[in-house]
Nucleic acid binder design. Structure first.
Ligand SMILES: [Mn+2]
Ligand SMILES: [Mn+2]
Ligand SMILES: [Mn+2]
Ligand SMILES: [Mn+2]
Lengths: 218, 218
DNA sequence: TAATAAAATTAGGTTTGCCTAATTTTATTA
DNA sequence: TAATAAAATTAGGCAAACCTAATTTTATTA
């Protein structure tokens, strides 16, 4: 069994491997992702290599082995299922669930994820729009198109969020944006790339380019 | 916030303090309860004393402070609520839930216990018949009368179990005994104190004295 | 009371997962 | 290419939570 810490590393490495902008998973990228020191990452790279969960090549960086990938996906599965539970059953808010799921994802018991999955009715997506891996490890592709790539005048459906921080989710909540909301791009301001949008056909609102980059559309 | 390990010590100390047979909570009793070495317990006694969660007196042994008791009860509350969840919602068996709850009880988030409590319909007892502490820390008295103290010829209702090990619970399952089952004491065998009982008016069955000691009646 | 047994404590050590500071290796850029 | 910057690694250390072995304290019993 992997420790709490090993699991967080596997998950971070998996997440980095899914990012199209990241071509090589470096020591420093992992350190950055976890908020740890690069020296600590070197220690863990050694440990996970010994356990055959990753392969490390000075040139190519870190890569999950099949075994490591399988483990990472199971943690993500648990994380996302617990998020659905916390939102739907315990009625937590959108912005509260991630941190609690970050702890719950490490609970280990053979078929806990499967029972939870069944109890929740086999949900396809978590509350942030991320696909929930199936018991066999199969997982739908994540939404990757950003609202930032939308055309002025176009209307788009919010499918997922890229940033899952409380700050961002609380802001979305304030703007009444959630999964399924329709957003029309009215105008882009040349000065700073901020955007004027209409939320569910409401009054025009101005948001930053950083904001729209973190909204994913279907 | 207390660590996982500190919480397990607090819980063990609380449990010992509830046992009428234990007059003084000694280093060795705690070590025994947790399966740790007495030397490790000495370390932790120091730590919990510094945090003002316990008081230690060479003569009187360990005692929880008001603060320590409050923390211990909240952990027990979470443990028992999660057990109800696992049994009723995830359909785990009686003998499977304790170990999973042992992990879940340490998940920390301000109102997780309260939301879970509400979701489960404010249950009074956990699946082993132990009372679930309320949000304010109030807790019904545990059942303490043992079937071993029953009179020959008498019929008693199973209210709780003293031992919560898988081995014991699986045996109960096999004998079709659960909370609410009626047991009649038919005869005590003088040789080894084993007992002949009738379960829900069924055929006579012989069980050991150790067995009946671990069944609590109302 | 003296001998013995049990309990508690101390001393020193290990593993895990982190850190800082120094150094070495690899990339960038003038 | 040489200088500089960035990334990776090494060396050494720390806190938490355990351990074993040795010693001291307290309790029991002959
Ligand atoms: Mn999340
Ligand atoms: Mn985590
Ligand atoms: Mn239990
Ligand atoms: Mn526990």
């Amino acid at each position: 069994m992997n420790t709490f810490s090993e699991e967080n590393y596997l998950k971070a490495i998996f997440r980095l491997s899914q990012m199209p902008t990241v071509s090589k998973i470096s020591t420093s990228a992992i350190a950055e992702a976890l908020g740890n020191n690069p020296a600590s990452v070197v220690d863990m790279i050694r440990k996970l290599t010994d356990k055959q969960l990753i392969e490390y090549d000075k040139k190519k960086g870190v890569k999950l082995t099949a075994h490591g990938q399988k483990d990472a996906i199971q943690i993500i599965r648990k994380h996302r299922l617990w998020e659905v539970f916390l939102l739907e059953k315990l009625e937590y808010r959108w912005d509260e669930i991630h941190d609690i799921a970050e702890e719950l994802e490490h609970i280990k018991h053979s078929d806990l994820a499967d029972r939870l999955d069944k109890f929740l009715g086999f949900p396809e997506y978590d509350p942030h729009g991320d696909p929930i891996p199936k018991a066999n490890g199969k997982m739908a592709k994540s939404f990757s198109a950003s609202l930032a790539d939308g055309k002025t005048g176009g209307t788009y459906r919010v499918a997922a969020v890229r940033d899952t921080s409380s700050a961002f989710l609380q802001y979305l909540h304030k703007l009444k944006i959630s999964i399924g909301t329709q957003i029309r791009l009215i105008e882009q301001i040349a000065f700073d790339q901020s955007l004027v949008i209409s939320i569910d056909n409401g009054e025009p609102t101005t948001v930053s380019s950083k904001f729209v980059e973190n909204i994913l559309i279907s």
